[in-house]
């Protein structure tokens, strides 16, 4: 970053970047893209890698490929349904386990045991039971997404500062009021961070299942593009999916920030 001959403009640029790390970050990203562009243009077989400039102009082509828009819709549908189911299961199980000390002590180790299983090993079973359509992807997404939500809800219900409960009881709060005015609002932020982790899990589960076997979703097209040695379209499709993942993550993250705004 330090120029060999510190010119006036050079120093100004340095000071500007110093004050704006975000701009410097953008510079780093652009540099990486430049390296990629140069590598792809002059050093790597175009059968395997396309330069980003080409990928950028290929987005239209990708979306115009027959079946791709429908595949994206299918994948989005799978993600949305899996996420919704994971949230409902996570919330219900989390509350049931978290609100009772006995439930927590007896069931939580089972939850942790199941969560610890590398689920990828049982993916073939999911396909076997739920078929190669969206059902298996949704099911696999649900089992990946629900555990973090369960654990976050349990933590949110249990990690309340004892003094808040004692204080509420001293003012005469009933059991219902403790639940409604103390436990519930305390749980909300961790529920939302659980949902963020759950979204990560759902994305992982659905995409794993899609990539494993697919006839209509994006998994089908990634394998087609790979087999046809069409890196441009493959990169374009991956970029579109990454963008979709970023948007979904960001959506949940915003919700989390919104509902946790009372935290300092």
């Amino acid at each position: 970053m330090s120029a060999a001959v510190p010119t006036h403009a050079g120093i100004r640029l340095q000071q500007y970047l110093w004050r704006h790390p975000g701009i410097a970050r953008l510079g780093v990203v652009l540099m990486l893209f430049a390296v990629w562009e140069i590598a792809a243009r002059w050093f790597v077989d175009p059968m395997f890698l396309s330069p980003p400039s080409k990928v950028l102009f290929a987005f239209g082509d990708v979306l115009a490929t027959r079946g791709v828009p429908a595949a994206l819709r299918v994948t989005f549908f799978e993600l949305a349904v899996a996420f919704a189911i994971a949230v409902v299961i996570g919330l219900v199980v989390g509350l049931a386990v978290g609100l009772s000390k006995f439930g927590n002590r007896s069931v939580m180790p089972i939850v942790l045991l199941l969560y610890g299983i590398p689920q990828i090993t049982i993916l073939p079973i999911f396909i076997l039971y739920f078929g190669i359509g969206p059902a298996s992807k949704i099911a696999f997404g649900v089992t990946h997404g629900m555990f973090p939500i369960v654990m976050a809800v349990v933590a949110g219900v249990q990690n309340i500062k004892p003094i808040l409960m004692v204080s509420a009881r001293s003012m005469g709060a009933s059991h219902w009021q403790l639940l409604r005015y103390v436990i519930y609002p305390h749980m909300i932020p961790s529920f939302f961070s659980g949902m963020r982790l759950g979204m990560t899990g759902v994305l992982l589960g659905v995409l794993l299942a899609e990539l494993y076997v697919s006839t209509a979703g994006i998994g089908y097209f990634t394998s087609v593009f790979t087999q046809n040695f069409d890196p441009t379209k493959l990169l374009g499709l991956v970029a579109i999916l990454a963008a979709m993942a970023i948007v979904l993550n960001e959506f949940v993250r915003r919700a989390e920030v919104h509902f946790a705004r009372w935290r300092d």
Binding site: F48, L49, T200, L203, L204, L207, L208, L211, T222, S223, F225, T226, F229, P231, L234, L235, V238, L241, A242, A245, I246, N249
Partner: peptide, 18 residues
Amino acid sequence: AGIYSIPIILFLPLYVLF
């Protein structure tokens, strides 16, 4: 942190190609 938040499993087809 930003890159980590996208499901990197997506790169698998690229890596297989590559």
